[in-house]
């Protein structure tokens, strides 16, 4: 092994980004969890859970009244059945919320992809020790990350366009 003879890798920057994305991911995840599962004030898809007995008896989870009425108010249909898709689309088509939530989701997407794929690369390079194989793995994993990024960006940006229930 020729230690110190190879050029400095980009690991220092990536490691530092890994710390930053990791720190941010904690907050992003907390917001994500809160909004998706606990917050009844903004439009959410949080469901009120049912017990095992209720489920057996055929009772389905329902949405909080705030969420249902927000969707109904926006569509003007006071009797419509509200699905999770409706709730999310309602949120992302809202002119005020859309920019905020799309920005939030894009940040979430970027950080999660970098964090996850840097980690994955570390694990793979622990077990793949041939320099050529390592380079190929690196290209393949970051290409996959890029594809996922494009798909994610497309989904987030286009969501809510022309939404009509």
């Amino acid at each position: 092994m020729n230690y110190g003879k190879s050029a400095r890798s980009t690991n220092a920057q990536n490691w530092f980004l890994h710390r930053i994305t990791g720190t941010f991911l904690i907050f992003l995840l907390i917001v994500h969890l809160w909004v998706q599962h606990y917050d009844h004030q903004t439009a959410t898809i949080a469901v009120q859970t049912v017990t095992a007995e209720q489920f057996e008896a055929g009772t389905l989870p329902t949405y909080p009244d705030e969420a249902v009425s927000a969707v109904r108010a926006q569509t003007g249909n006071a009797t419509m059945e509200v699905t999770p898709y409706d709730v999310v689309m309602q949120r992302l088509s809202d002119p005020v919320y859309a920019v905020l939530w799309k920005g939030f989701n894009i940040l979430f997407l970027l950080f999660a992809l970098h964090h996850g794929f840097y980690g994955l690369n570390n694990v793979l390079s622990d077990y793949i020790r041939n320099d050529m194989a390592r380079a190929i793995t690196k290209v393949l994993t970051w290409t996959l990350a890029l594809v996922l990024l494009i798909v994610g960006l497309y989904s987030v940006i286009t969501a809510g366009w022309n939404y009509s229930p």
Binding site: Y3, G4, S6, N11, W15, N122, S125
Partner: peptide, 14 residues
């Protein structure tokens, strides 16, 4: 640092 800041160095400490 040129030695430890490398692919077989510091960054493999998890």
């Amino acid at each position: 640092l040129g030695v430890v800041d490398s692919k077989e160095g510091l960054w493999k400490c998890y």
